[in-house]
């Protein structure tokens, strides 16, 4: 039984269903999903709005704004800006809101076998 993808490790004997039901894990799950799902929906909507405009609103997209720069080009470049912005936002959110709670759970489970640096204490194999 078990998954060949994982060699036996510190987590082999953990009761994952129990960990899953703890308030702490539920909170981590909620924080993760409440960020990534709305964000994924938002950028996909924005992207497809852009694609649809380029596809079916050619005249609007061809409107010159400044010199030869038209609305299509500006919206296209804004896709770059929004991608960079969401990336930065997610990293900030993960560092602040996800990583601390995830490492807390990890240490609680692995704590009796690992020290703070992740080295096995008293274990035979390295």
């Amino acid at each position: 039984m078990g998954n060949e993808a994982h060699t036996p490790d510190a987590a082999a004997s953990v009761d994952f269903e129990q960990v899953q039901s703890t308030g702490q894990f539920q909170e981590l799950r909620k924080r993760h999903r409440s960020f990534v799902f709305p964000m994924a929906v938002a950028f996909l909507l924005w992207y497809f709005a852009y694609v649809l405009l380029a596809d079916y609103a050619v005249e609007f997209m061809s409107t010159k704004v400044w010199g030869n720069i038209n609305i299509g080009l500006i919206l296209g470049l804004l896709q770059f800006v929004s991608t960079f912005a969401i990336t930065g936002w997610y990293v900030h959110y993960s560092n602040k809101r996800l990583d601390p709670i995830a490492s807390e759970i990890r240490h609680e489970i692995e704590g009796h076998e690992f020290d703070k640096n992740g080295n096995r204490v008293g274990g035979a194999n390295k």
């Binding site: 998954n3 060699t7 510190a10 994952f16 269903e17 995830a102 759970i105 990890r106 692995e110």
Partner: peptide
């Protein structure tokens, strides 16, 4: 359901991921 729990806990916390 135990495997589902394991996958979910591992995926979000990184427990036991090979270093």
């Amino acid at each position: 359901p135990a495997k589902q729990a394991e996958m979910e806990v591992r995926s979000l916390t990184g427990i036991g991921a090979e270093k």
